[in-house]
Design a protein around this nucleic acid. Structure first.
Length: 119
DNA sequence: CTGATGACTATAG
DNA sequence: CCTATAGCCATCA
């Protein structure tokens, strides 16, 4: 796969994260069709040009932590954006049990074709 | 080609 | 919770 295509797919996947939810790097990678590509997602976000409508702040580590060093400028920025969406960040972490994006569940709500349609 | 680098992750102690 | 370790993999010097 081409680099640009991969970047696009990653950005598109992140755009699908609904407001008020978060996803892990690995989760985004899998949905984008890049198994074990968590680091590539991180790389992609680092390359993300400013001014794009990509909700990068909704992407955090699998443990619910913000990937940046606590207290750093970028850490505070992301934390602020999350709180702006009503996603609490306690001690640098988000409650994945409550805010983790469940794409499969959502998918069933707007296009219930393949899943249970066939019987 | 080789080794170093990460906005990563899972596991073990 | 924390540290250590070992996988992981596109990129880059």
């Amino acid at each position: 796969m081409e680099r640009q295509a991969r970047l696009t797919r990653i950005y598109e996947t992140i755009r699908d994260i609904p407001r008020g939810s978060v996803a892990s790097y690995g989760q985004i990678a899998e949905i984008a069709g890049i198994p074990r590509g968590a680091r590539q997602v991180g790389w992609a976000l680092k390359q993300l040009p400013a001014g794009q409508d990509v909700p990068w702040h909704r992407v955090i580590t699998a443990s619910g932590r913000i990937a940046f060093e606590a207290g750093s400028a970028r850490f505070e920025k992301q934390k602020k954006l999350l709180k702006g969406e009503n996603i609490p960040v306690i001690a640098g972490r988000v409650d994945m049990g409550k805010y983790r994006w469940q794409p499969q569940l959502d998918e069933l709500l707007w296009k219930p074709t393949s899943a249970w349609d066939e019987r």
